[in-house]
Amino acid sequence: MTSEEIKKIVTEKFPDKLKEAKILGFEPSFIVEKGTVLEVCRFVKESKELSFDLLSCMSGADYPDRFEMVYLLFSFSRKHKMSLKVQLPKDNPEVESATAVWKGADWYEREIAELLGIKFKNHPDLRPLLLPEDWNEGYPLRKDWTGKDFIKMPDVK
């Protein structure tokens, strides 16, 4: 299915809940409202025409005014792809866990929760994944993070 057709199906199902975004290589791309993310995920996975069965990658990023979660999706049966984004507020970022839709989201979410400090509602087991057990120096992937051994490299022009 082409990018235009996917876009049509998704926007028809969720009018006025989506905004367009741009991720090169994984078009079409949408910004989903925070409250409806699980609903959209479930729809794109279970709908027969779309059937996005693989959560190819999942990531988060810290921007000056918001956090952003990215879901990169792919369908083995239909051989097409799309991406979803969710914007979260700076204070108390929280989003529904996608593990209910794709089991593969489990470790990705554990990693993001640990490194970026985003909370996932209804995640089965949100233990830290990568950092040491006694880690208490905050969330390293946030832009304002500094650790005691962290040296900022000089700016390049």
């Binding site: 090169l24 190819s56 990215v70 990169l72 390049v156």
Partner: peptide, 26 residues
Amino acid sequence: AGEVYVRIEAPRGEMGFYIVSDGSPK
């Protein structure tokens, strides 16, 4: 400035880089 996700077939499966650029050298 922009975002990109590229994936290739590595010996252990899909290897991908998701990069966000803000137009700076880093």
